[in-house]
Every structure is written in C-alpha cells, then in structure tokens.
Computed example of a mutant assay.
Amino acid sequence: MLYAVLCYNDEKAVSTWTEEEDAACMARLGKVQDELRHDGRLGPVVRLQNTTEAKTLRKANGEHVVFDGPFAETKEQFLGFYVADVDTIEEAVNFAKKLAVANPGLGSYEIRPLRVYLPSALLGDAAIAEPAE
C-alpha cells in the first residue's frame, strides 16, 4: 500500500537555517530514508520551495482567481512529502516518527493512504492501488 507522509513545519524557522544546518538535517533524513530506498519502497521525496514562490488558484462562480502564496493563514506550512510503499499504516507512522527525530524543531507529519489514478515509474505496470480500509 502506498502512503504519503506530508511534512509541515514553521517555514520561517526552516528558512533561517544556514547551508550547513540544512545539509545536516537532509543528511539525517537521508539515513532514515535509506531502508525504504534500499528495498525499492520509497517513491518521490519532494521538498517544496517557500510559500512566497507559490500561487493558489480558487474557483469562484465559474471564474478562476489566482492568489499569491498558499491560501492558508497558519504558522505551519506544507513543506514537502514522501511516498512510501509499506504494508500498514503503523509502518508508515513509524517511518514518520523516525523522520521527526531526524528533523529538528517543531512541526508535524500527516500520514495518508494513497489511491493512484495515474501510475508512474514507481509502480511500473502494477495495478492501480486500492485505498486502505
């Protein structure tokens, strides 16, 4: 089963890291990722650029309205995600716990089962995944 592990943190705090602090965090996260990657069970790992680079498109009365940044007033921002191919949600939660230890500061991880509608190279010719019950 595929699970998305969505990463949230205080973007302002993360943006203040030096290159060395950022590289050290990414190295710690890389060690956590190694087991799933080695087994071929880690899909895309994506880090989003700052929200100042983002746009939000909203539909309103049949019209499209584009806003600068994400459309959320919150301290924590969605910073990136992992796609992990694990057997149970408990395994996905354990992976997120290890990521949380490797990543300094506050923040949170949201774990969501995925339903794949357009298979990618990660899945090859595999059948479309069914959602978790």
Rank of each mutant, 00 (worst) to 15 (best):
M1L: 13
L2N: 05
Y3V: 01
V5W: 06
V5F: 03
L6M: 12
C7N: 05
Y8I: 02
Y8M: 02
N9V: 01
D10A: 06
E11T: 03
E11K: 00
A13G: 07
V14G: 04
T18P: 08
E19I: 00
E21W: 05
D22C: 09
A23V: 04
A24V: 02
M26H: 15
A27W: 06
R28K: 13
R28A: 13
L29S: 06
K31I: 05
Q33L: 03
D34E: 15
E35C: 02
E35R: 06
E35M: 09
R37F: 02
R37C: 01
H38S: 11
G40I: 00
R41E: 02
L42M: 08
G43K: 07
P44K: 11
P44G: 09
P44I: 03
R47C: 10
L48M: 13
T51N: 12
T51H: 10
T52W: 08
E53K: 15
K55I: 13
T56F: 02
R58S: 15
K59G: 12
K59D: 11
N61R: 15
N61Q: 15
E63R: 14
V65M: 14
V66G: 13
V66W: 09
V66N: 09
F67K: 08
G69N: 09
A72V: 09
A72C: 12
T74L: 12
E76M: 09
E76S: 11
Q77H: 13
L79T: 11
A84F: 01
A84N: 04
D87F: 07
T88R: 13
I89Q: 13
E90T: 15
E91T: 02
V93M: 14
V93C: 14
N94G: 10
F95P: 04
K97T: 10
K98N: 13
L99W: 01
A100V: 04
A102N: 11
A102F: 05
N103Y: 06
N103E: 07
G105K: 10
L106S: 12
G107L: 00
G107D: 09
G107N: 07
S108W: 01
S108Y: 03
V116T: 08
P119I: 04
A121G: 15
A121F: 11
L123H: 06
G124A: 08
A127F: 12
A127T: 10
A127E: 12
A129K: 04
A129Y: 07
E130F: 05
E130M: 08
P131C: 07
E133Q: 14
